[in-house]
Write a protein that binds this DNA or RNA. Structure first.
Lengths: 214, 214
DNA sequence: GTCTATAATTAGATAGAC
DNA sequence: GTCTATCTAATTATAGAC
């Protein structure tokens, strides 16, 4: 309607926004997480940021490059959440802190895990880029630390080849499927007490030897 | 090419296949799991079954009803995997058997969990139907059994509100993201020994009191 | 029940005015 | 850098011959 009416040409005034790149990424986070790459449209992403669809091509050249910038941004947030964890000297306590932060991050930013799961559900160029650039370093580090903790008798008998995925799954599934979780529990939103109990429960369960060390 | 050429009208002969419904569902399982509902096209689904796109509307009336029939089919397979588990008298052993079968099913049929995750990533009519019809009964039963096992001192300190999702995540994540897992491990396919170690590891980890009972 | 043809809509990307 | 208009291709669904 608005578009068709020549009288309403002033409903959307021309405006320059220096933060438009960030706004488009914020919008893309929500759309890609909800509908996947193929299921998301650049039109919807632009509209959510109150922008026009061609602006995506201007600022990111293609839908794929917008997706990559979106994933890069989310991994930067993840890095911030984990900052300083290497300074914890005891490896068991460091891994425990990693579990807690993983749960908190998944609860606060479920979008990253949603995007990863949607892409890793099939083999495609996006999944390969994501795996090599962002996942592999975290996977290898976690695997090595886990082997050390198993030798020390602290860690549960989860195979080190799979501990990355088991941990990610156990930590993020309630939040990746948060609309399902909330519908099942009859809640508007998952509260902090439950998220905390989740995190502490995982620490105790995955590191049963931690108590003995304290 | 073939379509455009009038000489090649015999490249695809007319044929009636009584199993076309099942073939379309088999094809839909793969497409929906890989690309999600919105990212899958009825053309691709039909082509994979060597059928024409309008046959989907003839046999299922709409893309959505094809999706529902596909999910129903996968849950029937899940029920078969779990058949007879209620006859295990000891609740701890029954839950342990449930964990093992969940892992084996996720490894063999990762498509169901992929479809569930993709839909539960946003609130939509498909997610609501899926949750109420298929997920809720399993969720409630698992939650109640878990509470009993925690009171008996057998189960790990995972909150009963979240045990369904934590268990599903820990059991299925390596297979939902199997292309990622295989790329990271440099494997063509996850082998049986690893899948078995995964299942047994989860049983021991989630039911730490089980050994004492044996 | 299968198949071709096509309607109606929507997709990502581009051209060019401003 | 924003915006309108539009191109080409792909989408789901339907009509009608066989």
């Amino acid at each position: 309607m608005i578009k068709a009416s020549p009288d309403n040409q002033n409903t959307r005034r021309r405006r320059d926004r220096s933060d438009i790149r960030d706004l488009l990424i914020e919008s893309a986070i929500i759309e890609f997480a909800a509908h996947g790459f193929e299921g998301s449209s650049t039109r919807s992403i632009a509209e959510r940021a109150d922008a026009h669809q061609p602006q995506i091509n201007y600022h990111f050249a293609s839908k794929f490059q917008l997706w990559r910038a979106t994933v890069d941004h989310l991994f930067e947030l993840l890095d911030k959440t984990f900052s300083g964890i290497d300074e914890i000297e005891d490896p068991a306590e460091s891994f425990a802190a990693g579990i807690r932060r993983l749960v908190y991050f998944a609860a606060e930013h479920p979008h990253l895990n949603r995007i990863i799961v949607q892409e890793s559900s099939s083999s495609n160029p996006r999944m390969q880029w994501l795996t090599e650039v962002h996942v592999r370093p975290r996977f290898e580090q976690r695997r090595k630390l886990w082997r050390d903790l198993q030798e020390a008798g602290v860690a549960a008998p989860i195979p080190d080849e799979l501990v990355h995925h088991v941990l990610i799954g156990a930590a993020s599934q309630p939040y990746v499927s948060s609309s399902e979780t909330e519908l099942l529990l009859g809640l508007e939103q998952l509260d902090w007490a439950l998220i905390n109990a989740h995190a502490e429960g995982l620490v105790t369960t995955l590191l049963p030897g931690l108590d003995r060390l304290r």
